[in-house]
Simulated scan of single mutants.
Amino acid sequence: MKNRLKELRINRGLSQKNLINEFNLFLEKNLNKYVGQRGIRQVTSATESRWENGLNKPTSAMWQALSDYFGVNVS
């Protein structure tokens, strides 16, 4: 099974570190959109790596934030 998060990151020409930095900045700038939603927090390199390797999955709220960041549907 292909990893959509990794595919989106690579298509944007981002390293994992760049994605983490840009996504965390995106969360800071859009925090009011996600206020009160559980599971929205800054992403570490370990977390992003586990997502890409299928060891963990983002929460549904974090999936929404990721889809907003990449400009794609959650599905």
Rank of each mutant, 00 (worst) to 15 (best):
V43C: 14
E7S: 08
R41T: 10
S49Q: 08
S15Y: 07
I40M: 11
G36Q: 10
Q42M: 09
Q37T: 04
I40R: 03
V43F: 04
N24S: 07
E7D: 11
G13M: 01
N21L: 12
Y34I: 02
I40D: 06
I20V: 15
S49T: 11
Q37K: 15
L8S: 01
R9F: 03
G39H: 07
Q42T: 09
T44V: 09
Q16D: 05
G36S: 06
G36C: 04
L19F: 14
I20S: 03
L31E: 13
K6R: 14
N24W: 02
L31G: 01
I20M: 12
G39C: 05
L31Y: 06
N18Y: 10
L8Y: 12
L14R: 04
N32C: 06
K17W: 10
R41P: 00
F23Y: 10
G13R: 00
E22T: 03
V35K: 15
F26Y: 15
L5G: 00
K29W: 08
R41N: 09
F23A: 01
S45C: 05
E28T: 07
Q16T: 10
E48M: 13
V35D: 15
R38F: 14
E48C: 12
N24V: 12
N18Q: 15
V43Q: 13
G36K: 07
N24I: 09
L25I: 10
R41F: 07
I40V: 12
Q16P: 06
T44W: 10
I20D: 01
E28P: 01
N32P: 01
L19D: 00
E28Q: 13
I20C: 10
E7F: 03
S49C: 11
L19I: 02
Y34Q: 06
A46D: 09
I10R: 06
S49H: 11
K17Q: 12
I20T: 14
L27Y: 08
N11E: 14
L14T: 05
A46R: 01
N21G: 04
Q37V: 01
L31Q: 13
L5V: 04
E28K: 13
N21M: 09
Q16A: 08
N32H: 11
L25Q: 14
N18E: 15
L19M: 13
N30A: 08
Q37F: 10
G39T: 05
L19E: 00
R41E: 11
G39M: 06
K33S: 04
N21S: 10
Y34S: 04
E22P: 02
N11I: 01
F23D: 02
K17G: 01
I10E: 12
A46N: 05
L8C: 03
K17H: 13
L5F: 13
L25M: 12
V43E: 11
Q42C: 03
